[in-house]
Simulated assay, not measured.
Amino acid sequence: MNDEKKDLIKIIKQNFPKLSKGQKLIAQFIMDNYDKAAFMTASRLGEKVGVSESTVVRFASALGFDGYPKLQKSLQELIKTKLTTVQRVEMSRDYSNDWAVLNKILKSDIENIRNTLDEINPKSFENVIDDIVSAKRIYIVGLRSSTAITEYLGFYLNLILDNVIVVSYGISDVFEQIIKIDEEDLVIGISFPRYSKKTYEVLEFAKKQGAKVVSLTDSQLSPIATLSDNTLIAKSNMASFVDSLVAPLSLINALIVALGMREKDKIKRYFDKLEHVWKEYHIYDDKE
C-alpha cells in the first residue's frame, strides 16, 4: 500500500465493518480525535481507548499498514491539511508549562532537521543549483507563512545574482509580476501546510508558460510538488498553531552557500564593494 497517498479516514471507514470490537474502538477514536491520535504512541493510544498495545498494532495491520509507525505517519500527513488553526491551538494546550513548550518545540525542530538530512536527495539538490545558475530570470514565490523564508532566500540570491525577482503581495497582483515569464526562466515555489492555493496557481501559470519549476516543500505529495521539475523536501512537522520553518530555512542556507561556492570570485568582488559602502554610510555598529 502507498500509505501516504490515501486518506486514512477513508481507509478506516472502508474497513470498519470487518474490524474486531477492540479495533473498532481505536477506529472510532481516531475518526473523532485524529488531531490527538496522530502524536500518540501505540501504547498511549491503546491506554486511551482501553485496549492493549498489541491490539493497536493489529489494527494497523488490518488497515493494510506495515506496522503502527506507518499508520501514524499517514495520520500525521493527513492532519497537515485537515487541521484548522483552532484545532492547532487546542493541541498546544497539552503543553503543561513554559519549559515543556521550550523543550517540545526545540526537540521537534531538531527532529525536523534530522529527518530532512536523512531524506534529502543529493541529486535533486545539485539539480536545483544547476537550474538557478542557468536560468535567464529567477522568480521566487512563497505566500502566507512562507513569505518570511521567501524574502530571506530572495535577499541572499540578490547578493549573488542579478536576475532574481521575489513575487509578493503588493501594489500589483502576483500574476502581473510574472507575466513576462517564459521557457528560459525558473520559478522557485515555497509552500508548507496549510498550503497556499495562490502559490500553487502561480506555479501552475509558470508551468503553462514553459518555465522550469522548482519547489521547496514538506512532501512529494504537496500540491506544488506535483508541478515541479525538481523538488527539495524539508520537514515541518509541528504539533502547534505555528508553522515550523527551521528545517526549510536550514535547507535554504545550504542552497545559498552551495550557490555562493560556484560564484566565489563574483561574490568576493561584490562584498568588497559593499564593505566600503557599509563603512562609509555607517550601516553597522562597528564601535571598537
Rank of each mutant, 00 (worst) to 15 (best):
E280Q: 03
T81N: 15
S191A: 15
D285I: 12
S61R: 13
I9F: 10
P17M: 09
M1V: 08
I120C: 11
I160F: 03
K273H: 04
P122D: 09
R194P: 03
E47Y: 03
V213G: 09
L216K: 04
I171Y: 10
I252G: 03
I178D: 01
L117R: 10
V202K: 11
A206F: 06
S215C: 15
G67C: 01
I9Y: 01
I160L: 13
L106W: 02
K264S: 14
A148V: 13
V101W: 08
N121A: 05
D285Q: 13
G260P: 06
P17S: 14
G22I: 05
K104T: 14
F59H: 04
D286R: 14
I26Y: 02
I178M: 05
L161Q: 07
K73Q: 15
E126I: 05
I233D: 01
D185H: 09
I178L: 02
F155T: 14
M91Q: 14
Y270I: 08
S124R: 11
R58Q: 10
F175A: 00
Q23N: 07
V164S: 01
V101F: 12
F271H: 07
L102R: 03
Q14R: 06
Y169E: 06
R88Y: 07
Q23Y: 11
K273W: 03
K180M: 11
L117C: 13
I105V: 15
V128D: 06
K13W: 02
V49N: 04
V213T: 13
T150L: 01
I160Y: 02
S124I: 05
K18S: 15
Q28R: 15
M91R: 12
L203N: 14
L71R: 01
S146C: 12
